[in-house]
Amino acid sequence: MTSKSSTPVLATGTDDPTPPPRQRERPRRGGFPVDVRLAGLVGVLLLLCLVGYITRPDGFLTEANISTMLRLAAAIGVVSVGMTFVIISGGIDLSVGSIVALSSVWMTTLATQSYGPVVMVLCGLLVGLACGLVNGLLISYGKIVPFIATLAMYASARGLAERLSGRRTQVVSETGFTTFFRGAFLGIPVLIWMLALVFAVGWVLLNRTNFGRRTLAVGGNAEAARLAGIDVKRHTALVYGIAGLCCGIAAIMVVARTTSGASTNGLFYELDAIAAVVIGGTLLTGGRGSLIGTLVGVLIFTVLNSIFTQNNLDTDIQNIAKGVIIVAAVLLQSTKLRRRIRKT
């Protein structure tokens, strides 16, 4: 791993196997720079909301529109949770969009639909998990770099999705599935509940469990983590498994939203997810990251999309704005980092 700043801190922890990653992480998360960046990010989000409100006072901050925005953020949000884990562990996953496509197709074949909604859901989750684990095994035990292993999955998962579906759009006729996932619970759409649940579980997993601390340790310095007694290979495989499982959940959401499974689902999810994770403040080199930042990152892009549509503006300007936001966020991140390295 090329991570520079974290190595010395971690190395001091080798005499005590379990807590070192935590010792390394704790002062930083409570520390000043993280909060400033997150506050800045939330500021951007609020600013965008303000712009939306000013340009469309009657249509933007309505309950219906907020609900629509969150529903649209749900699938990519869940994928981004998995991506956050992968990137924190020092890897990258280019296959998420293709796995979403494959899961969505597999769970909507006529055979799966004939077994009812429960099997459809299980099928979506299993396919996602299995693809993720294959990624993980190839990377950890097959020693293929993440970029290449997931690139292979990127190609072959979508290929298999096309094969299974015959490149057709498979409309869901199973009404039990659509009624539940397109419905609402306590007045809030089920998809939004799912998004909240995945984020909550992800946050606890990352910040309050050994698993999360190990993920940070592996991403910070894999060799040091290994010396500290962490089974790095197994851990890496599991992290990609989580990312795959998230894709399976996202596939359920996409199928619910579009009432169909298609091999074209999840196009460019990998890019959107990586963008959201990066502007959320997770280091692409691994070892540090924030799920709340990722959530804000996802919301920024969703709000941006909504503002442009509500004001009937062309998508080309929107893409420019998207690029500017990514660059600005990363610049902010790197100057912060440089300043901190100089200080220590």
Binding site: R56, G59, N65, T68, R257, L267, N305, T309, Q310, N311
Partner: peptide, 14 residues
């Protein structure tokens, strides 16, 4: 279908 759903959901809100 996915992009159609996303864009239309926003359009209808506006």
């Amino acid at each position: 279908p996915e992009s159609g759903e996303q864009q239309t959901a926003n359009l209808l809100q506006g």
